[in-house]
Structure formats: C-alpha cells, structure tokens
Amino acid sequence: MTEGARGKGRPKRTEIAEIDRAIRDATLQVLLEHGEAATMHAVAQAAGISRKSLYARHPNKEALFRDVIRALLMNAEALGYDETGTAEEQLQHYIEAALAAIARPASQAMQRLLRRDHGYFAALKTEMLDATRKIFFVPLATLLVRAKTSGELAIDDVEATARATIQLIFAEGLRPDDDRPRGLPQRGAGDYAAFLTRLLTRGLTPRND
C-alpha cells in the first residue's frame, strides 16, 4: 500500500503497522541487493512511501538499520526442527535447521552489516543475546533434557552442553566465505550437521561399565 492510497488525516493504527512492516521488508530487500551501500531513498521507494515519511520514523540510515534489526530480533521465534526419531537423529535435525536459519539471505545480510560496523553490535547486544537464547538455546536445551531424562544421552550439564553446541554451529555457519581455509574440501551443511552430531553423541552416549 502506497501513501497515496490513504485518505487524509491521522493514519489509523493498522495503517501505521502496515507502513512499519513495509519499511522492514523494504530495508531487508535493499540490504540484500545493495548491502551497506543501501540508501534511504532506495528503502523509501521499495516501501512505497515518501522519504519524508521514512525520515520521520528513522532520522538516518544507521538508525533505520538498527531499528529494523532490533524489531526482527525482538519478534524472533524459537527454531523449529523435526522432533521425530532418536535423540541423535533429533540432534542432527536441530543442527541442520540451525545452519539453515543462519544461511538465510536475510540473516546473511544482517551478519555482513554487523561485521562491517561494530556499532550495530554494541547497540543491539542485549537484543541479540535474548534472540539467540530464544531461537537456538531454548529448543536445544529442551531436546537435551528429554534425551537425558530418557537415558539416551549422558549429560552432566545441559546448559553448558547447549552453549558449546551452539558455539560450534555458529563457528561454521557464521564464518565468512573468504575466511574458510583454502585447498580443503568444503563441507555441506548436511555433512557438517552429521559430523557435529557424531562428535557430540560419541561423548554423550551412556557407557556400560
């Protein structure tokens, strides 16, 4: 919906929400297409609003990007994955889903922005930590508790195991392509998920002494 489609007077709450959603969608689209070179003009065009309306909500490009990323983080949902099968199979499903979430174009665009300007990271640190816990940690900790309770995996510290697993996932999923070792075969997401699952479960499988 463009601004010209609305009547005169103060916008309704639903119209304001639609405009904000259009701005978020447009900002992600422009970031994907242009990266840090994205402009307020391009975002306004993509959102179908005037630059005046965009600047009334976000005084500059940095504030726009920060506000959009903050909204996305605060509205994030827990990671969904296939919860069927054994604990080991569920763990591999979880790792595959986590790697896929990190590899999404919108996620990659935000990662590039955060790497290039640490000011965004500093401003959004609390929201990023909260979102990471909600998206990744809680579902994994729930999986590990189930596996521990059923006796499928021997886990002394669920929280520490979940944190270490997520760090290993992020170490692979968040690494820039130009930071990967040269001359080594590139492991696909599925292969890495299987490798990491074996690495974890071999150390967590109960032993019959």
Rank of each mutant, 00 (worst) to 15 (best):
S150G: 09
R24S: 14
D67Q: 14
L143C: 06
D130P: 01
L114W: 03
N75V: 03
R182N: 09
D209I: 07
I16E: 10
L64F: 08
L140H: 06
I166Q: 03
A164L: 13
D191E: 15
A189I: 03
P11R: 11
E88P: 02
A122N: 10
E18P: 00
I16S: 03
L204G: 06
L91D: 09
A109E: 06
L168S: 14
D117F: 07
L73T: 07
E96G: 10
D179F: 10
A164Y: 04
D25M: 08
A122W: 05
V158P: 00
Q167H: 09
I166K: 00
L168T: 05
A100L: 07
A154P: 00
A37M: 09
L113Y: 03
D179S: 11
T205P: 05
G80C: 03
M110Q: 13
E15V: 04
E18A: 14
T126S: 11
I166F: 02
T27F: 00
L31P: 04
P181R: 07
D177F: 09
V145M: 08
A189G: 04
A42V: 02
M128H: 06
A162N: 04
D67T: 11
G9H: 01
E152N: 07
L64C: 01
P59A: 06
K125W: 08
D130W: 04
R133W: 08
E152F: 04
D157P: 00
R51A: 02
M1R: 03
E89A: 15
F121D: 10
A189L: 12
F195E: 11
R13K: 13
R133I: 02
E96R: 15
F195V: 05
S53D: 03
A194C: 04
A194W: 06
G188F: 07
K8I: 07
R6L: 10
G190P: 02
R10P: 00
R66N: 05
D157Y: 00
L124F: 08
P59K: 07
A87G: 15
A87Y: 06
D25L: 13
I166G: 01
I19V: 15
T39S: 15
R70S: 12
R175I: 06
P185A: 10
A171K: 06
L174F: 09
L91I: 11
R57Q: 04
D67V: 00
L79P: 05
R13H: 11
